[in-house]
């Protein structure tokens, strides 16, 4: 690496492009982000804890993390199957399904939110059938295992309660898992499976002992990406969540609520907790990616 800031290269435009890049990055991203950290630097420790650890806020962390985790897990499972089917099988309309996987990136979150609500509400497209089933199922569970408050955990209805949040976060997270797994599955050499078969493994053994370990780092990365996205998600969730305080209120909504009450410090304190959490998560994702590259580097 060159000892000076100016690299030796015959190509022009280094100073101009770097200067513009740094100025733009600083003005749009770094200075505004530092405003959040400076804002809480002016708070006393007591006020900070009071803002970020009040029961209602803690309930929102548990809900956001818990439901995001559940949605990311479901995405990891179904994402693997979708990626497998897209890479390995030929069927009419495969290209269309492949393109549709990116829909959650392309469809605005507010649109997704109201569409999912229209589907899963009590009188909705699917909700009119599924909602009574759900209510009955939760009732059965409560009858069999009465010492757990199932209705509060799993929600009394699908839309406007916790299951709705889960559905919205699953919708948002799917492409992350599929798009991380697809290149890895494509690169997977058929020789591996053939070798396993010659050595006497049946398909189940090949799938679980050869293919799954090979794609596991990518699966974990996709899972972590879906999880990270789900924690910060706002638009698609607020319409379907019901937003009952301390029950179905996600953390980003807490920030909005505090802002609407002109509690800028409280809002910023919660935001900083979320920022730190997502920076940690992305650091972990970065390590995961290095790990999965080491595995996939041949």
């Amino acid at each position: 690496m060159a000892p000076t800031i100016r690299p030796r290269s015959v190509l022009p435009g280094f100073g101009l492009s770097l200067g513009f890049t740094l100025a733009y990055l600083g003005l749009i991203v770094l200075i505004p982000l530092s405003a959040a950290f400076l804002k809480i630097a002016g708070m006393s420790w007591h006020d900070f804890v009071a803002a970020v650890a009040s029961p209602r806020v803690v309930a929102s962390y548990r809900l956001s993390f818990g439901v995001s985790l559940a949605a990311a897990l479901v995405n990891a499972f179904f994402g693997f199957i979708v990626a497998w089917v897209l890479v390995r099988y030929t069927f009419p309309g495969r290209r269309i399904v492949d393109a549709l996987v990116d829909l959650p990136f392309a469809l605005p979150t507010a649109v997704a939110g109201i569409a999912l609500t229209a589907i899963y509400a009590k009188n909705g497209w699917v909700g009119q059938w599924l909602d009574p089933l759900w209510v009955r199922g939760v009732g059965r569970l409560a009858a069999f295992v009465p010492w757990i408050d199932w209705k509060s955990w799993l929600g009394g209805t699908i839309a406007f309660d916790r299951p709705g949040i889960f559905i919205a976060l699953t919708f948002i997270g799917l492409p992350f898992v599929v798009r991380t797994l697809q290149p890895v599955l494509i690169e997977l050499e058929p020789e591996l499976e053939e070798a396993a078969a010659t050595l006497g493994a049946n398909r189940w053994q090949t799938m679980t002992r050869v293919i799954l370990p090979e794609v596991f780092p990518a699966m974990l990365t996709g899972f972590a990406l879906a999880f990270a996205r789900a924690i910060g998600e706002y638009g698609s969730v607020v319409f379907i969540a019901g937003n009952q305080p301390a029950h179905s209120e996600i953390t980003p909504l807490i920030i909005i609520t505090k802002l609407e009450q002109y509690d800028y410090r409280g809002a910023t304190a919660v935001a900083v907790v979320m920022l730190v959490a997502s920076f940690f998560l992305l650091f972990a994702i970065n390590l995961l990616q290095k790990w999965s590259r080491r595995f996939s580097a041949v």
Binding site: L22, V29, P32, P252, I255, L281
Partner: peptide, 23 residues
């Protein structure tokens, strides 16, 4: 620098709005 460019993707949309309110 490459890492910092990706930073906005790590930030919840709500927080992206909030920081401009703070400025």
């Amino acid at each position: 620098l490459t890492t910092l460019i990706d930073l906005p993707f790590a930030v919840s949309p709500v927080i992206s709005g909030l920081i401009y309110v703070l400025v």
